[in-house]
């Protein structure tokens, strides 16, 4: 096992970890504020990808500049967040905040089932491809390996921006502080006149507590590195890796990576 291999595995791991982070941070924020494990989060991811691909194809067929495919991806993310996330929160989740955690989880399971069909009916079953964002920026050669700039620089940079951006919003803006307050102590913040339903809506649209963000970042990196090291050294463990990491984390830090002690209520 040479140094080269370790370096390559780290680059791949970083890139994959950044992708995982972008999905996980939303899940984390929702869980942190709403205490709901959003089983349907994977569907948000898939629908986001479909919308981005559809917009990309639309741009290509309209003959517009391929550079527009980058803002199109941002537009896709906002569309999915506002329409799917917003609608879901306003019509459904808002009605179940008082219910048991278990039931809340099941509601998102039901949403997952429904969104599966929505995807199928809307986009059919054929794979969609837009590789303009990938090919436009070209490749960069590291140790004799071609990496696409998109994979090696853009995705990790976007992930970093999201990380820093969320931290900034949660610490320094009004809505962010309110979200933080709700995460820390829901009852107290409501007593102080915070309209929690608006906070929830915001959270759900942003796809997003605090503390959890760093946790999501570290966990995503662990999964990314674990998986790429597996591909390089023991390909058989590639598929098992994320679950093994999840299992180990739950074993040693059952409340999550960056958890604080919770008091028990009698």
């Amino acid at each position: 096992m040479s140094l080269d291999i370790i370096l390559l595995a780290m680059l791949d791991g970083l890139s994959y970890g950044a992708q995982v982070f972008l999905v996980a941070v939303g899940l984390s924020l929702i869980f942190g504020v709403l205490r709901i494990v959003n089983v349907a989060h994977g569907s948000f991811y898939a629908i986001g990808a479909y919308v981005a691909a559809s917009l990309g194809i639309w741009i290509a067929t309209a003959g517009w500049s391929p550079w527009l495919s980058y803002p199109a991806m941002l537009v896709a993310a906002i569309l999915v967040g506002v329409i799917v996330g917003g609608l879901l929160e306003a019509t459904l989740l808002r009605r179940i905040y008082g219910k048991e955690q278990v039931l809340q989880l099941l509601v998102t399971f039901a949403v997952f089932m429904i969104l599966e069909d929505v995807q199928k009916v809307t986009w059919g079953v054929k794979p969609y491809f837009v590789n303009t964002p990938l090919s436009l920026l070209g490749t960069v050669n590291v140790l004799g390996i071609n990496y696409s700039v998109y994979q090696l620089a853009v995705i990790p940079l976007v992930a970093l921006c999201v990380l820093l951006g969320l931290r900034f919003i949660l610490r320094y803006t009004r809505i962010g502080r309110i979200v933080t307050a709700v995460t820390e102590d829901r009852e107290a913040s409501m007593a102080m006149g915070v309209d929690s339903s608006r906070v929830y809506l915001f959270t759900f649209m942003a796809g997003a507590g605090l503390g959890q963000i760093e946790g999501a970042a570290v966990a995503a990196l662990m999964i990314g590195l674990g998986r790429s090291i597996a591909v390089y050294l023991a390909p058989e463990f590639d598929v098992l890796m994320p679950y093994l990491i999840m299992f180990v984390v739950l074993l040693f830090k059952p409340q999550g990576l960056f958890s604080t002690l919770q008091t028990r209520k009698v």
Binding site: I5, L8, A9, D12, S15, I145, Y147, Y232, V239
Partner: peptide, 17 residues
């Protein structure tokens, strides 16, 4: 790689090496 995997960049790097 996993059936239905959305990303093969690690595999491609490994093969390129």
């Amino acid at each position: 790689p996993k059936f239905g995997a959305p990303d093969y960049s690690t595999e491609i790097s490994r093969l390129q090496a």
